[in-house]
Amino acid sequence: MIDMIVTDPTLLIEYTLMAMLLAVGVAIVRLRDLFAVVMLLGVYSLLSAAWFVSLDALDVGFTEAAVGAGISTLLLLAAMLLTARSAEPVSAIRHWSAFAVALAGGAALFYAIGDMPAFGDPDAPANAYVGLQYLERTQADIGVPNVVTAVLASYRGFDTLGEVVVIFAAGLGVMLLLGMGGRKPRKDGEGEE
């Protein structure tokens, strides 16, 4: 492993980030104070964002930084303020059964790694068929340097319209359920509606 790091120093960054993710994950499981847990979840998202950037997935990286570290943290904070500040202690049996499920899932993923193409492999199915077509034709068809944008907004414009409608429907659901005015309960105990 040492000689791999010497030939490719960016690996050191990735290993460090993975170790930090693991440490933050363990801390989140161990903590009872939900305020600290929410903050650590934000740290976890920020670390994953840095990891995505080191894997050259720049747009995924800054979406994760804005959504995971920014918006989710704020929403979890608001949810925490509405409910409880600290978690109830959980029995050891439930801890260990959850650990067993996580271990089994992780082992299955590790088993599957052998069948995955190498990172950035040009012969990988994701890069070979329709992906290659997009890379070859975008300049002539759309004239936009960013192929991701060309696929998202032009080739697959209809899908993206569907996605926007889904987001709209999600927002509509929240607005219908929770309302937007944020009517605080009246003091005379009459309830809200």
């Binding site: 704020l74 929403l75 926007v164 987001i167 929770l178 937007m180």
Partner: peptide, 25 residues
Amino acid sequence: VEIGVLLTVFSVILAIFYAFAGRAP
């Protein structure tokens, strides 16, 4: 079309935030 995406995403996220934060002290 990206302006449409921007408007909807911005508004929905803020709507969800208002809906939650308006209730939390």
